[in-house]
């Protein structure tokens, strides 16, 4: 085992531990803000794993999109509606929790056996060096349709967001019974100088 392999194994162990612990924290912690921040740690750990797999572009994109955009949006949402309310202790909580644990362990066991049972085709070479070029070529040849579909989906989401943000496109619903009296402050009616001259 030479230097680079040792570094790789140590980094893999560290990153895997980081990702797993942070993911457990996301699920198990009571306070939602901690969960959101730990989600960022999970994304960073996953991006580190991508780097170990020589997928540098995917790693950087992972950080940019998931940490820089998705996680920040989640945090925004949490912080803007942050109301610190203590949860009402619900009865029979243990039943829910144990059911969740059983389901989760089942999925984990299923995935684990799948990972072990599948004969993975491990590439003998360290992979392409110019990853960006390869990704681009794939995007515009054999993965063109999913790529375009994803972009159309994003465009639709963007148009929807703009329509939501610009309220003047949404017709205002008027309640038939309500009279629309202009809001006026209780103040003395102003005497205009012209009126005073006339009277």
């Amino acid at each position: 085992m030479n230097l680079s392999e040792g570094v790789q194994i140590v980094s893999f162990v560290v990153l895997a531990a980081l990702t797993l612990c942070a993911a457990l924290g996301v699920v198990l912690l009571e306070e939602i803000v901690y969960s959101a921040f730990l989600l960022g740690a999970v994304f960073i750990g996953i991006s580190g794993l991508f780097i170990l797999l020589n997928a540098d572009f995917v790693a950087a994109a992972q950080i940019l999109i998931y940490v820089g955009a998705v996680n920040v949006l989640i945090l925004f949402a949490i912080m803007l509606v942050n109301k610190r309310e203590p949860f009402a202790p619900s009865r029979n909580l243990w039943i829910r929790r144990s059911a969740t644990a059983v389901v989760c362990l089942g999925i984990f066991a299923l995935l684990g056996t799948m990972v072990i049972a599948t004969p993975w085709a491990i590439a003998p070479s360290p992979g392409p060096v110019d990853t960006v070029l390869k990704i681009g070529i794939h995007f515009f040849s054999d993965y063109l349709l999913p790529f375009e579909l994803a972009s159309v989906l994003l465009l639709m989401a963007m148009v929807g967001a703009i329509i939501l943000a610009r309220r003047d496109f949404i017709p205002e619903v008027t309640i038939p019974g309500a009279t629309s009296e202009p809001l006026a402050l209780p103040e003395r009616p102003r005497e205009l100088p012209s009126e005073r001259v006339g009277s």
């Binding site: 803000v33 540098d56 950080i63 920040v72 945090l75 912080m79 942050n82």
Partner: peptide, 25 residues
């Protein structure tokens, strides 16, 4: 001499707002 060079900078600089949100919160 990273393959993704300048893109790494852009993605790294997107981590900073998390720290700002964290300290603000």
């Amino acid at each position: 001499d990273l393959n993704v060079g300048i893109f790494l900078w852009i993605s790294l600089s997107s981590i900073a707002p998390i720290g700002l949100l964290m300290s603000g919160y």
